[in-house]
């Protein structure tokens, strides 16, 4: 259970039982950093690239991207790379964790 309240500056952010935001409007880069820090992750440039990509995909298509789509975009961006690079960033599932820190709903599909 990771539900509770996350304190970010003066704000109290409510989280659901999986640690996702209860209200997507609460999201900000500071909130993302605080959520990741709680899991022992310091968000760097590559983490932010992934979070932005997943947020934009969700905005455009109403669902998170498939892993193969993320890997293709990563390769296009870096000229090289694989899913291993993305799992190094977010070992518990790159797309799921990018949704988590990106303030998106928990993916509820079984893909």
């Amino acid at each position: 259970m990771r539900s509770g309240v996350l304190r970010v500056g003066e704000r109290c952010i409510e989280l659901d039982t999986d640690g996702f935001l209860r209200d997507a409007d609460d999201w900000s880069p500071d909130v993302a950093r605080a959520m990741a820090a709680r899991d022992g992750i310091e968000l760097g440039e590559d983490h932010w690239w992934l979070i932005r990509f997943v947020r934009e995909h969700h905005r455009d298509y109403d669902n998170p991207p498939l892993m193969r789509v993320v890997v293709a975009a990563w390769r296009q961006e870096r000229g090289d790379g694989s899913s291993r690079d993305l799992y190094r960033l977010f070992p518990d599932g790159p797309v799921r964790q990018a949704c988590l820190y990106g303030g998106l709903p928990r993916p509820d599909w079984c893909i």
Binding site: H57, Y61, D62, N63, P65, L66, R68, V69, A72
Partner: peptide, 12 residues
């Protein structure tokens, strides 16, 4: 059409 469009955009 929004969700279906990703199939074309990413050649899925």
């Amino acid at each position: 059409a929004r969700g279906w469009r990703q199939l074309v955009d990413f050649e899925l």
